[in-house]
């Protein structure tokens, strides 16, 4: 599962899908998750980063990550081609 390669993500969290024309605004947590995914980080690595950056418990970070991934899936921002 990866973020589709054509999805544009700006430094301030603006997300644009050039195929559908849809755009979204991600908060700093969401932006960090997307940037980590783009760098190829695993789920445990992303959770660890979130815990360090935002001072949250791992269970909270895991839940937020799963919620965010589910949201990205619903918005057709993910690809499963290389799973």
């Amino acid at each position: 599962m990866k973020i589709k390669s054509n999805i544009a993500i700006s430094d301030n969290g603006f997300v644009f899908n050039p195929v559908t024309g849809e755009s979204f605004t991600a908060n700093p947590t969401g932006l960090e998750i997307m940037n980590q995914m783009r760098r190829g980080a695993s789920a445990p690595q992303i959770v660890e980063t979130l815990c360090n950056m935002f001072q949250v418990e791992p269970t909270q970070a895991e839940r937020d990550l799963q919620d965010f991934i589910e949201m990205m899936r619903q918005y057709h921002l993910l690809t499963y081609d290389e799973e």
């Binding site: 054509n6 195929v19 559908t20 024309g21 849809e22």
Partner: peptide
């Protein structure tokens, strides 16, 4: 191709964006 972003009450596009939809 274009996606309507803002549609008036008459259904007309008041804003839109060019997209890359093959």
């Amino acid at each position: 191709p274009m996606r309507k972003q803002y549609i008036t009450d008459k259904g007309k596009a008041w804003g839109g964006i060019s997209i890359a939809d093959e």
